[in-house]
Amino acid sequence: MAYRETEKMRQRKAQARKNIIECTWECVSEGGFRNARITRIASRAGVATGTIYRHFESREELFAEIFRMATQREVDKVAEALAIQGNAVARLEKALRQFAYRALKAPMKAWALIAEPVDPKVEEERLVYRKAYANLFEQAIRNGIAEGGIPDQDARLTSTCLVGAISESLVGPLSPTQAAATQGHKNNEDELVDTIVCFCLQGLTGTRS
């Protein structure tokens, strides 16, 4: 007689998998992907390391799953900001501020998702994540061009410039937040966000907001 998995067993497996994912994300949130060692995750989840590999074929697959989960949440937040009432420029400003303040609120998470050196499988997910942002910005820019609030331009190229500018200025190696952290200082977050948003909107519209 063939073995048939019961509903109770499926629920237990699903809960165990969820627990592993949550514990992995906790480790990443505290110290990046380098902090998420399998032994540490297993200890936090209260399981053997072999149990993790019964749910995920490899460490890279686990990290890719974590990355998809975390980045989708961030992309959804930007999408929500772009869905507010108002013209395209106002919606883009809202989305840029949303992105920036969320990154500054959780700098380790932002660094892990945007800039931390990661395995190739996770890097593939990072590219998907950046494209998702670019697609959202591109549509908003096209709307702005149609409205007349944004000059005619290559919306696709401009959207990638926005993603690169805000990512680098917030968590990249040249970011003032990185320099301040190294020196034990703290940036004025409002001033930093205002500067970044002003630069982005100025590049889009050709005028200072």
Rank of each mutant, 00 (worst) to 15 (best):
R37S: 07
T39V: 09
S43T: 14
S43Y: 11
R44Q: 07
A45N: 13
A45Q: 05
G46D: 08
G46N: 01
T49M: 04
T49C: 05
I52Q: 00
H55K: 08
F56M: 02
F56H: 02
E57S: 09
S58K: 08
R59P: 01
R59H: 06
L62F: 05
L62W: 00
A64R: 05
E65C: 12
I66L: 12
F67R: 01
R68N: 10
R68C: 12
M69Q: 06
M69I: 08
A70F: 06
T71N: 03
R73H: 03
E74K: 12
E74R: 13
D76E: 13
K77I: 05
K77E: 00
V78T: 05
V78Q: 00
A79G: 10
A79H: 01
A81N: 07
A81Q: 06
L82C: 08
L82V: 08
L82G: 07
L82F: 08
I84N: 14
I84F: 11
G86A: 12
G86M: 12
N87D: 15
V89F: 15
A90D: 15
R91Y: 10
R91V: 05
L92P: 00
L92I: 15
E93S: 03
E93K: 14
K94T: 12
A95K: 11
L96N: 01
L96K: 02
R97D: 06
R97Q: 13
F99W: 09
F99L: 14
A100M: 13
A100I: 01
Y101W: 15
Y101V: 12
A103W: 01
A103K: 00
L104N: 14
L104R: 09
A106F: 12
A106H: 06
A110W: 02
W111P: 01
I114E: 03
A115R: 13
A115E: 11
P117C: 08
P117L: 09
P117R: 03
V118S: 02
P120S: 06
V122G: 00
E123L: 12
E124D: 03
E124S: 04
E125A: 02
R126L: 06
L127A: 11
V128F: 14
V128M: 14
Y129V: 02
R130N: 12
R130C: 10
K131V: 09
A132E: 00
A132C: 10
N135E: 13
L136A: 09
L136V: 05
L136K: 05
E138W: 10
A140W: 09
I141F: 11
I141H: 11
I141N: 03
N143T: 12
A146L: 11
G148C: 07
P151E: 04
D154F: 13
R156F: 11
L157Y: 15
T158Y: 10
S159G: 13
S159Y: 04
T160H: 10
T160L: 10
C161I: 15
C161A: 15
V163R: 07
V163S: 06
A165W: 08
A165R: 09
A165C: 05
I166F: 01
E168V: 02
E168R: 09
E168Q: 15
E168I: 06
S169Y: 08
S169N: 09
G172D: 03
P173G: 04
P173M: 13
S175L: 07
Q178R: 15
A179W: 14
